[in-house]
Nucleic acid binder design. Sequence first.
DNA 1: ACCTGAACACCGTTCAAGT
DNA 2: ACCTGAACACCGTTCAAGT
Lengths: 231, 231
Amino acid sequence: MEAQTEPQAEARIPLSKERVLRAAVGLADEGGIGSLTMRRLAERLGSEPMSLYYHVANKDALLDGVADLILGEIIEATGKIEISSGDWKTVARQRILAAREILLRHPWAPEVIESRTNMSTSSLRYFDSLIGLLLEAGFSIDLAHHALHALGSRAMGFTQEMYDDSQPLDDEALEFFLEQVADEYPHITTMVKSISHDADTTLGWCDDQFEFEFGLDLILDGLERLRGKPN
Amino acid sequence: MEAQTEPQAEARIPLSKERVLRAAVGLADEGGIGSLTMRRLAERLGSEPMSLYYHVANKDALLDGVADLILGEIIEATGKIEISSGDWKTVARQRILAAREILLRHPWAPEVIESRTNMSTSSLRYFDSLIGLLLEAGFSIDLAHHALHALGSRAMGFTQEMYDDSQPLDDEALEFFLEQVADEYPHITTMVKSISHDADTTLGWCDDQFEFEFGLDLILDGLERLRGKPN
DNA sequence: ACCTGAACACCGTTCAAGT
DNA sequence: ACCTGAACACCGTTCAAGT
């Protein structure tokens, strides 16, 4: 009924699955997925590693929960975009870009989501609503199915980039391409040269947002063309 | 000059970067990427963990080397498909499907390739040749650049599947969808029901090869349509 | 019901040494 | 030039116990 006589009897918030998962997201947001360990998570929560195992079966289940939590954010954001607000393509586009916005705030999340072998209830809900949108727009079940595969992770707002363009391609790297290996990779050299001539390269090599939308529209337009065809 | 008098003086093959990398691939092929550890790798090579570090800077460098080795296989296979053998689309298609065939033999490889932040010389070579194909077909440099982003990992023959369909969707899971959650995920239920009615579901839920080609063609056709346009 | 301490079987890697 | 042994700083997790 009364605080102990212990020196610093901080109001000790008890653990809970919710609290554990939220702390895990926080840890990953700050230091990347590599910094999310059971031991560090416990430390952040002011408890002991083994205490986590009461709320979460093991690390794999922790990651399941974390993925589900992020997908929950996505569902909340995309749920607001109603089917009534336009043709299927603009609605799908808006939803996918909304999902992307959330994932941009959790750069480690795509990797975690991808690594889950079992679909969480959140991802089932997300895909169910996307399928509903397509069927309502007149897609055959088969075409809707192919559409999901064709979109792949893009349906949830992310792509796996094959090249790291996070830093602006400094002069050293540029020099490297233009002089050192121009004859070994002539076409890449041409491309790099061309891109670096374009406006603000200070932002980084490529405009990821533009490229994401370009690829997304390519697929959505292709699907629109197949919709209604006899199949 | 002569074998030692030691009991079992097996012809001791000396380590080399080549041998280390090949053994690493073998280990991953057999037990997945999780089973590739420095310690197990050393054991397989009949030497000690620390011996590996003479041939490879650290585990990250090992993975770089492994990715490069697989990409080398891909270059060898795709190099045979000449530009002269058809229009750009069929050539690109053939090359990409050839790359895919190799990756199907190393299911762990996409993840490793994706995780490399620095492009290996092999991937530079692969993309250089792909860009060359596009430019020669009349793509503008910008469109070729967008094409690479739109294809993403598909350019090297893989996609990241969002749902694990490796097992054939057993009766239990089917039952689950058809009865338990039909009203919670109505559209997924419809789709699953439809797919499970189709021919040989014994092969697994989805036909990955078909879906890969469907998505690939969607993108290639879209690019073909943009090619030649004023942009 | 909720949390913990000690211990185990693993990791990758440093460092100083052996041939 | 090539390899090694001992040791360190980390992991996730089992198990038996505490409140």
